[in-house]
């Protein structure tokens, strides 16, 4: 990977993704190029079916592009084998899912520590304490996911994603399954992680208030990036979305 993208941690070039073959083929992405700068939050927005999730999956190495290249932390990932991808995930990638995806048989603390346990690493106690404090789960650590509210579960998920201090954290509709008050808390948490720890975040959402947390907002429509905004408020983002929907 060339270093020409001035320090970007995630670099995608001319990424296309086609689902299916022949007449029923769907082009979910039609040539997307994007750089994700470190220490910043990037939001990806767009109407339903515009390819947001597909883009995020490809950026995160979960899915492979039909054509184009993706680099994370200087490594070209589209040609990596499974073992190298796993190693990359351990070092550089954190995930937050819409449906939390916690392991039901583990309590909150074990869920948070899971990435380290899997990698066979020792948790840094100071970091764990700070993280737990920050996400506000101090007195919930021994609860199982089934005993936690949706917002609390998503906090656990965020702590789990941050515990290994990944190069970049990907979140697909992290507030998609939460009420608005809880959503606000989660978004605040994400914002603080950028501000306080300098965490790089890529977040897919169709909630303009969520996108307002980001330093940069990309708009997708029909598999292409159609607009880009810098830091701005929810109202501006909402207006752009309306425009796109009308177009």
């Amino acid at each position: 990977m060339s270093e020409s993208h001035d320090g970007a941690v995630v670099v995608a070039q001319d990424v296309t993704r086609r689902y299916g073959e022949g007449e029923t083929a769907v082009d979910a992405l039609r040539g997307v190029s994007v750089d994700i700068a470190p220490g910043k939050a990037t939001a990806v927005m767009g109407p339903s079916g515009s390819g947001k999730s597909t883009l995020m999956h490809i950026l995160a190495g979960l899915d492979k592009p039909t054509s184009g290249t993706v680099g994370i932390a200087g490594t070209e990932i589209t040609t990596l084998g499974d073992n190298d991808l796993t190693k990359l995930r351990r070092e550089h990638i954190g995930f937050v899912f819409q449906f939390f995806n916690l392991l039901p048989m583990l309590d909150a603390k074990e869920n948070i520590l899971l990435p380290l346990t899997i990698a066979g690493e020792k948790p840094d106690d100071g970091w764990l304490d700070q993280l737990v404090d920050d996400v506000g789960l101090k007195d919930r650590l021994s609860h199982r996911p089934a005993e936690l509210s949706g917002g609390q579960q998503q906090r656990v998920a965020i702590a789990r994603a941050l515990i290994s201090r990944p190069t970049v954290l990907f979140a697909d509709e992290p507030t998609g399954n939460l009420d608005s008050a809880t959503s606000a808390e989660i978004l605040e948490l994400l914002r603080r992680s950028v501000a306080e720890y300098g965490q790089t975040i890529v977040m897919v959402t169709h909630d303009s208030r969520a996108a307002a947390v980001a330093h940069r907002v990309l708009f997708l429509a029909d598999g292409e990036i159609v607009r880009e905004l810098g830091e701005c408020d929810a109202h501006t983002i909402h207006t752009v979305m309306e425009e796109l929907a009308a177009a």
Binding site: T86, R89, I93, G94, F97, N101, P115
Partner: peptide, 10 residues
């Protein structure tokens, strides 16, 4: 799959 995304190997 979740385990895989957070770094578990095959």
């Amino acid at each position: 799959a979740t385990l895989r995304t957070i770094g578990a190997t095959n």
